[in-house]
Design a protein around this nucleic acid. Structure first.
Length: 577
DNA sequence: ATAGGGTTAG
């Protein structure tokens, strides 16, 4: 009989399905299948290795007379990481009914399946089971549990698990930090990162990824710089994935040049994501030409562009108004048989629509191999508003209604299309529909970082400690910009309120509050940086342009789609967005 | 001996 280490080496060399099948046949013919520990190893290999095959793993499993916990776990783990993670949950239930004991690993794999299947309810069930089994001191398992709660959207439950852990290791911190960052609570992610350092932990590459992502979301440059310095000190920048996050952080904080210098001087090999991140960074800043250059350069560097690369390049053409280039790119992607997603189509429709080529945009929609989604109809509607195409606007709105979209944005757009044509009766009709349908507004908010502290403002916000000063500043702004011939574009506000109130509703958009606060708190000549969750509105865009002259300030606003750099009365988007 | 935390996207 072969020794254990020979068997191990056999398994190590077993990198194809054929080889696994031969091994199984060998075990069966030599009668070693039922009692051999080697069999469990083989089963695990089939179930979880990339060369393996789950249906063959099932075949092996079915032949086992009395499957051990390990045998059950191997298949469970394979299912949890498969494209159909819900199957892991039925497997777990089957195992719970079997005579074999469920162990901590079983729970861990089942939870992994919950995370991938976004099965919150099942996760709570496994949670109570693992407490009953007495696994509550297992920090690896609790970290998995915490991670599942975060990924399935219950950050409070995740935090509770984290807080109650009697002992934590670095992965527990990492799971909590990245959970907060991914779950739109980036402020708390940064706070927890700082607390971790205060408690004497040494963040590793995974920690900084979460923290950097939080900085990117918030445009928190000061925090981002501190983390970058830490990354360099700890030599974490030998990992390409960390460099990518640093590049993205600088880009999303408005420092494309810094992002580019990190991109150029990084010591490790650039990955596909590195190139994509940099192309997207240039796209967001309206540098379409350079983005297209990078798309060519990556090929020279031996990296094949993927669907995200092309999407980023398309997006770059979009923001730079490079209509022909974008259109050619799109044709080329089709020619190369790239797998196009609804996002690619959305981008091209936006590209054509903004350029006023609405008919062509519509033809693209009709030729799409998949169903157009809400975002796509919305951008067509936006184009109709800009170019005054009532007929097409009505068509797009009908589609949006059919899709049950309840977002206030498109009602406002449609009403604006009518308002521009002085069709007041139709404006009233839309307004009525909004009331009946109980249209939900996505709350707009903005961030600005002052001395390393992030301030958040929502529309009409009065909760900020400096609220009084901010509103006084806004009055002053209103007064000073009037002499530049500014008049509020109140037809953009869709409420049953009087003209003066409409003006106020516009006046107190979150980005205006953030800019006003920046003017108060920072010295003359300091650029003001604002991050906004939605697209900037026409009125704010105009007001901030004038502010940049009157107050001689550079103001940088990152909205949902791109950067706007306001300087001396002009915006880098050239009013094309 | 077998487990947990991870960057890009209209």
């Amino acid at each position: 009989m072969a020794s254990q280490c020979q068997l191990d080496s056999v398994l190590q060399k077993c990198t194809s399905l054929i080889c696994m099948k031969l091994l199984q046949a060998h075990l069966i013919t030599t009668g070693k299948f039922q009692c051999h520990p080697f069999r469990s190893k083989l089963l695990e290999l089939c179930a979880i290795s990339p060369a393996g095959d789950l249906s063959f793993a099932f075949q092996i499993f079915r032949r086992i007379q009395t499957p051990s916990t390990n045998d059950w776990n191997a298949v469970l783990r394979g299912l949890a990481q498969s494209p159909k993670p819900t199957q892991a949950l039925s497997w777990y239930r089957a195992m719970s009914r079997s005579p074999q004991k469920v162990d901590a690993l079983t729970c861990s794999f089942a939870l992994k399946g919950c995370a991938r299947a976004l099965a919150f309810f099942e996760a709570t069930q496994i949670h109570s089971q693992l407490l009953r089994f007495g696994f509550e001191a297992d920090i690896l398992l609790l970290t998995t549990l915490l991670d599942v709660y975060a990924k399935t959207g219950d950050l409070d439950a995740a935090h509770k698990v984290f807080d109650n852990m009697h002992k934590r290791d670095i992965a527990s911190w990492n799971a909590m930090i990245s959970g907060l960052a991914q779950g739109s609570r980036p402020n708390e992610a940064i706070a927890l990162f700082n607390r971790m350092k205060e408690e004497g932990w040494r963040p590793n590459e995974v920690t900084v990824l979460g923290a950097l992502s939080a900085c990117s979301q918030l445009g928190a440059l000061k925090h981002g710089q501190i983390i970058h310095a830490y990354v360099v000190d700890e030599k974490l920048d030998t990992e390409v994935i960390v460099c990518n996050a640093v590049i993205d952080m600088y880009a999303k904080c408005g420092f494309v040049d810094k992002a580019y210098s990190v991109f150029i001087s990084m010591s490790c090999k650039k990955s596909l994501v590195t190139w994509n991140t940099m192309i997207m960074a240039l796209a967001m800043n309206g540098d379409g030409k350079k983005a297209l250059e990078l798309l060519d350069q990556m090929v020279v560097d031996g990296v094949d562009p993927d669907a995200v690369s092309y999407l980023s390049a398309l997006c770059a053409c979009n923001h730079a108004g490079l209509v022909e280039e974008g259109f050619r790119l799109f044709d080329m992607m089709k020619g190369r048989g790239m797998k196009l997603t609804v996002k690619h189509y959305g981008s091209v429709v936006d590209l054509l629509g903004r350029a006023g080529r609405i008919k062509e945009a519509c033809d693209i929609i009709n030729s799409m191999p998949m169903l157009p989604d809400v975002v796509l109809w919305q951008s067509l509607l936006g184009a109709c508003k800009t170019h005054g195409n009532v007929e097409m606007a009505e068509m797009a709105s009908r589609k949006l209604v059919e899709m049950g979209s309840n977002n206030c944005g498109y009602f406002v757009l449609l009403s604006n299309v009518y308002a521009a044509q002085q069709r007041w009766h139709d404006v009233g009709r839309v307004r009525e529909a909004m009331k009946i349908k109980d249209v939900r507004k996505v709350p707009g908010f903005s961030y600005t970082e002052i001395d390393g502290k992030i301030h958040k403002f929502v529309n009409g916000d009065q909760s900020h400690p400096s609220s009084k000063d901010i509103y006084a500043k806004l009055d002053e702004i209103k007064f000073r910009i009037k002499s530049y011939g500014y008049a509020a574009e109140t037809n953009l506000v869709l409420h049953d309120i009087g003209e003066e109130d409409k003006e106020n509703a516009l006046n107190y958009h979150s980005e205006k509050l953030a800019v006003a606060y920046g003017l108060i708190k920072t010295g003359d000549g300091t650029p003001i940086q604002v991050i906004k969750n939605l697209r900037i509105c026409v009125d704010c865009h105009l007001v901030i342009k004038i502010i940049s002259i009157v107050y001689k300030r550079e103001i940088i606003v990152r909205d949902r789609a791109r950067f706007h750099r306001f300087k001396e009365g002009v915006c880098s988007c050239r009013d094309y967005w």
